[in-house]
């Protein structure tokens, strides 16, 4: 759950993705292999070593109009290829707040 603001060195310990927030509305997006952004984690490009991660992040940073604040985040990839968030922070970003929103209660 380390803040991306503290993510200084690019060093990954397992499968990872690049995530950011879409510029015009701020929603959570994931960098895809097609050099675009998707709101679906299942469409995220998976990187498995630091060089790949660095390259994917550099490409994401270059798309400053599309999304802001890109960073590398860990994921878990199941045997069936299903991608799941690798920590609580990313779980919350993907599925929303864990508390119920007052307007919906």
């Amino acid at each position: 759950m380390t803040s991306p603001l503290e993510q200084k060195k690019i060093k990954i310990a397992g499968p990872s993705i690049v995530t950011a927030n879409r510029t015009w509305d701020g929603i959570v997006v994931y960098r895809t292999a097609a050099k675009g952004w998707s709101a679906e984690l299942s469409e995220a490009a998976i990187v498995r070593n630091s060089d790949e991660a660095r390259a994917l992040l550099a490409e994401a940073v270059a798309d400053d109009v599309g999304a802001i604040g890109p960073y590398i985040a860990p994921v878990q990839v199941g045997e069936d290829g299903k991608i799941l968030p690798g920590n609580l922070r990313e779980q919350i970003r993907r599925t929303g707040v864990t508390i119920g929103q007052p307007a919906q209660v």
């Binding site: 759950m1 380390t2 803040s3 991306p4 603001l5 604040g69 609580l88 922070r89 919350i92 707040v97 864990t98 508390i99």
Partner: peptide
Amino acid sequence: GLDYCSLANARSIPIAQ
């Protein structure tokens, strides 16, 4: 807390709830 904030390390609101 971590339900909304990009600086947070842990959740606050569920503890309060």
